[in-house]
Each structure stands twice: as C-alpha cells, then as structure tokens.
C-alpha cells in the first residue's frame, strides 16, 4: 500500500492531469479515479461503456484486475483511459 502518482490522459479530454492512486489499485480502479477528474467535468459520460487503461501508445489495454504494483508502470507515467 503506497501512494503512486500517474499522469492521466482521458479520452476526449484536453489536458494531462496528476492522478494519485495506490499501488494496490486495479486498472478498473485507476480508470474510475481518472474519470473523477474528467467525466462530468469536461468529458460527457458514456453510459453502457467500460473504461480501460493502456500505456501511452499501446494498442491493447492492461488487464482490468491488474494491480498498479504488478503493471510495470513508472511513477508519473502517462496512461490513456479509453472507452470500450
């Protein structure tokens, strides 16, 4: 359990944002944390869609239950949160 900073790049938003998460968070929890700072603030919600996390430039999203501590993500690495 440790605070872990990431950079959130949320699909449809205009700016990178600081995203403090926990090393025990899953990718779904990371996506939800990122959504808190974008969806309903500048990005419209998309009911019925799932949010997925991928590394910047990757084609495939990371597994939904993967923990931050297992992901190989570096502090402040830019993750893209995309609708699926």
């Amino acid at each position: 359990m440790a605070l872990f900073p990431l950079t959130s790049n949320f699909q449809g938003d205009f700016v990178l944002q600081l995203l403090p998460v926990d090393t025990e968070n899953t990718m779904d929890e990371v996506a939800a944390a990122a959504a808190h700072h974008s969806v309903g603030r500048r990005v419209p919600a998309r009911p019925g869609h799932t949010m997925r996390v991928r590394q910047q430039g990757a084609k495939e999203p990371l597994p939904r239950t993967l923990k931050v501590s297992e992901s190989g993500l570096k502090p402040m690495e830019c993750i893209e949160v995309i609708w699926e």
């Binding site: 950079t7 449809g12 938003d13 205009f14 700016v15 990178l16 944002q17 600081l18 995203l19 403090p20 808190h36 700072h37 500048r42 990005v43 402040m76 830019c78």
Partner: peptide, 21 residues
C-alpha cells in the same frame, strides 16, 4: 478542479492539445 494539470518540464505550461473526437 480537484487535481493539478501536468505541466511541461520546458515551458512549464499544462500539457494539452485538441480534445473531443
């Protein structure tokens, strides 16, 4: 806002570009 924008290590300004589709 409830968090900070990530800023550039050169211009020190928020890293941003065109949003939407």
């Amino acid at each position: 806002p409830e968090t900070l924008p990530v800023v550039c290590n050169m211009c020190q300004l928020p890293i941003n570009a065109t949003p939407g589709p």
